[in-house]
Each structure stands twice: as structure tokens, then as C-alpha cells.
Design a binder for these strands. Sequence first.
DNA 1: ATGGTGGATGGTCCA
Length: 256
Amino acid sequence: MKIATWNVNSIIARLPHLTRWLDAIQPDVLCVQETKCTDEKFPFDVLKEHGYGCLSFGQQSYNGVAILSRGQCDTTQRGYPGVEEAGQARLLATRVAGLEIVNVYIPNGQAVGSEKYNFKLEWMRRLRAFFDDRYQNTAPVVLCGDFNVAPEDRDVHNPTLWQERIMCSAAERATLGEIKEWGFVDCFRQHHDEAGKFSWWDYRAGAFRRNHGLRIDHVWTSEALARRNTDTWIDIEPRTWEKPSDHAPVIAEFEL
DNA sequence: ATGGTGGATGGTCCA
């Protein structure tokens, strides 16, 4: 079973890439971030033609998350309880084949110390509380998405340059660590120890060509499920295509 | 490389 995550930076602009990639990789589940469209404009029909049923929690212009699945899945949560449709479209949870799937688009945070940065930290603290309230860490749980945090220096092309900058600050890493302590395993790091493996590269200054990137897109699972994870890898190929997303998909494979 | 590019939108906001 393949479970993947991909920030597509507009699902409408990226639809040709998305369908090409789905046909090639055929994940069982794909969690998408930054759909940037309302549910009314979501391309349900096109994706159904490629074999995927979709859940969309979108909003106009910004954010937006979706879950594509080959199997049956039903929404369990759109946004945080008590906020839901009134909040930003950054969390969508479902259940597929007995697995709990939580897809998140953690706020970018703009700059360390800014108002958006504080919102990011609060949003992450709320995510930990969400798992405490709603899930058991002994159950098969997947948390994946665009976390907008590079967990360690080996996830950063130039740690000196990025020190205490957004996506790399100690406070962001510590807050992400509190989420991980709920009982998650970083599936990618189970299989790959090396530095220089990234999932996002800035559009500017030839960042991708120089591999000036960050590993900020993640698939985390509870421990029981992590033991079934045979490999987790980043597919950089779509980042080489014309008019790409600035993110590459991450694929976790499971023997269930 | 102090947004250098890109997306949504229709003058800026966001990443």
C-alpha cells in the first residue's frame, strides 16, 4: 500500500502533473495541500476518471487540503473541532482501509517572531491536542502533509544560512517535536540517514538545479504502522517537469 | 540573494 503527500500549489494549475503522476505511481492514498480552490471548483470528475475518489476541504485562493483515494473513505474531520468551516482549510482527516489518515497544511509562518509565526506555533500546539483528544497512539495512524518545518539540520541545504529562519527555528522544531512525542515515527528517516534529501525548493535563483532545498513534507505514522513501512522516498521527478509545483511528493510504502 | 518566481486575482496577498 502506498500513501503519499504532495503540496501541488494549486490543484487546477497542476492538474496535468497530478494526473500524470497518479497514473505512473498509482498511490492508494494521496494527501494534497494548497489546492487553492473551493470545493465547488475542485476537479472531482477528472480525478475520478483516473481512478480516485476525493475529499476536498478547500477555500478560495489560499490553503486547501484534499485526500485522494482508490478505496472507500469518508470524511471524519474538516478543520479543527469547534472551528471547522470558519477556520483556514488546513486539516482534513479520514479513515481508509482501517487506517486513520490526517492530512495537514501547517502554516508557513512568514518570518520568525511575526504574527503569522505565532499563529503557526499555536496551530501546531493545537494539532498535538487534536491527537490527544481524538486518537490512540496504539492505533494505525498516519499524519502527513506539508509541515513547513525542516526537523533537523540534515534536512536543510545550508543550515548556517537557515539558522533561526522560518521553517528551521528552534521553537518550530521543538513544537514539532511535541507533536512527534504523541507517538509518531518519521517514515523517511527510518530508511534514509543522509543529508541533502529535500521535498521543497524555492522557485527562484535556480534553487532546484543547485539542490538548495528543505525537507518539509513528511509522512509520520504511529509505531505499529511504522514497522510495516518498507520504504519512504521523495519523488523529485515532477519537480523537473515544466511549470512544476515547488514541492515534490513523498511516498510511504506499507506491507499490511 | 533583504521575494530573485509563481499562483490566484484583477491591486496585492501569500508562499
